[in-house]
């Protein structure tokens, strides 16, 4: 069975470490915040200038001056700091954020990512995505393995305009957990009940399949 969005978030959360500063992109990556283990302290960065994002507010806490990068109202946690946009991106560009999780439309075997533009459709803009992928050493892409029409999103070469070049090294899809290495995808884990054959079939770019591919553990 393909993973649900929640299960995908649960698997990505296993890559967190105590004391990590983490940027979670808009969309599915946001769900990772719900699976931070209780024994771990993780500081979430929102690129509009909030380091230490807390939960959504109660009615009483609601404040129009306190939003996240998705423009949702939020709170600040204990230990948070608030900075301007230049400072916020200095943290990102300067490599101070330990982990970035973001969505994508396509990823290829060279670690290129396309996530912001579909030619012929209204281009809304890249927001902070180009800075995030250029600045982070440690990025996990979260996306479905194939499009709704069944086309693979893991390609030998991205077809859509890029968000960043040679920057992605880990991918979690609804079918598998993969790494990008030396011009190939490497299959590291498969979703419970998903066969290696299905993953091979839905991966367009060159895929290395080790002798044993363990099933993902979902807590």
């Amino acid at each position: 069975m393909a993973l649900t969005r929640e299960q995908m978030a649960c698997r990505v959360a296993q890559e967190l470490h105590d004391g990590f500063y983490v940027n979670l992109g808009i969309g599915i990556p946001t769900l990772v915040a719900n699976y931070i283990p209780d024994h771990m302290d993780v500081m979430l960065q929102s690129e509009n200038g909030l380091l230490g994002m807390g939960p959504f507010p109660t009615e009483a806490e609601l404040d129009p001056d306190m939003i996240n990068a998705g423009k949702q109202t939020v709170t600040a946690r204990v230990g948070a700091s608030i900075v301007d946009s230049a400072e916020s991106f200095a943290m990102i560009r300067g490599g101070h954020i330990d982990l970035t999780v973001l969505g994508a439309l396509e990823v290829d075997v060279h670690g290129n990512i396309a996530s912001w533009m579909i030619p012929g459709k209204m281009v809304k803009g890249m927001g902070g995505a180009m800075d995030l992928v250029a600045g982070a050493d440690n990025i996990i892409v979260m996306m479905t393995h194939a499009s709704k029409s069944g086309e693979s999103k893991l390609l030998s070469q991205c077809k859509l305009p890029l968000t960043g070049a040679n920057c992605i090294n880990r991918i979690l899809t609804d079918l598998a957990y993969l790494e990008v290495k030396d011009g190939s995808f490497v299959l590291k884990e498969r979703a419970p009940g998903v066969s290696v054959a299905e993953i091979v079939e839905k991966t367009a770019g060159h895929l290395i399949v080790p002798d044993t591919v363990p099933e993902m553990k979902l807590q």
Binding site: S85, S88, A165
Partner: peptide, 28 residues
Amino acid sequence: PQGSLAEKLRAGGAGIPAFFTASGYGTP
């Protein structure tokens, strides 16, 4: 890119005419 926009304005105010950044390399 959002970070480049912030930095372009910061540089504009700080008397720095241009800067190098990895953001956007390899993209349109």
